[in-house]
Simulated scan of single mutants.
Amino acid sequence: MPSKPVLSDADKKAIRKRLGELCEECWIAHGYKKTSIKNLCDNAGISIGTFYTLYPTKEDLFSETIERIEKRLTEKVLAINRSSQTKEGFAQSMKELFREYDSKPFLYNVNTPDFQSFVTKLPEETIQKIKFDSFEFFKQAVQAADLTLKIEPSQAYGILSALLSTINAKETLAVTCDYFAVFDRMADILVSSIFE
Results as ranks from 00 to 15, higher is better:
Tyr52Trp: 09
Tyr52Ser: 12
Thr53Asp: 07
Tyr55Met: 10
Pro56Thr: 11
Thr57Glu: 11
Lys58Pro: 02
Lys58Ile: 13
Glu59Ile: 08
Asp60Met: 13
Asp60Phe: 04
Asp60Gln: 14
Asp60Ala: 15
Phe62Gln: 04
Ser63Ile: 05
Ser63Gly: 11
Glu64His: 04
Arg68Asn: 14
Ile69Arg: 07
Glu70Trp: 04
Glu70His: 10
Arg72Val: 14
Leu73Gly: 10
Glu75Trp: 03
Glu75Pro: 04
Glu75Gln: 14
Lys76Arg: 14
Ala79His: 07
Ala79Gln: 13
Ile80Leu: 10
Ser83Phe: 04
Ser84Arg: 09
Gln85His: 07
Thr86Val: 08
Lys87Leu: 10
Lys87Phe: 02
Glu88Trp: 01
Glu88Asn: 11
Glu88Gly: 10
Gly89Phe: 05
Gln92Glu: 15
Ser93Arg: 01
Ser93Asp: 05
Lys95Gly: 03
Lys95Met: 10
Leu97Pro: 01
Glu100Tyr: 02
Asp102Pro: 00
Lys104Gly: 04
Lys104His: 09
Pro105Asn: 10
Leu107Phe: 00
Asn109Lys: 14
Asn109Pro: 02
Val110Asn: 08
Thr112Gln: 04
Pro113Gln: 11
Asp114Trp: 02
Asp114Ala: 09
Val119Gln: 05
Val119Cys: 03
Lys121Trp: 03
Lys121Asp: 07
Leu122Thr: 03
Pro123Thr: 14
Thr126Cys: 09
Thr126Trp: 00
Ile127Met: 09
Gln128Thr: 14
Gln128Val: 14
Gln128Pro: 03
Ile130Asn: 03
Lys131Gly: 11
Asp133Trp: 02
Ser134Met: 13
Ser134Cys: 12
Phe135His: 09
Phe135Thr: 11
Glu136Thr: 15
Glu136Gly: 15
Phe138Ser: 06
Lys139Ser: 13
Lys139Ala: 15
Gln140Gly: 05
Gln140Tyr: 06
Ala141Tyr: 01
Ala141Lys: 01
Leu149Gln: 07
Lys150Tyr: 01
Ile151Val: 15
Glu152Val: 12
Glu152Ala: 15
Pro153Tyr: 02
Ser154Val: 15
Gln155Ile: 15
Gln155Pro: 00
Ala156Phe: 03
Ile159Phe: 05
Leu160Pro: 00
Leu160Gln: 01
Ser161Phe: 08
Ser161Trp: 02
Ser161Glu: 12
Ala162Ile: 08
Leu163Ile: 05
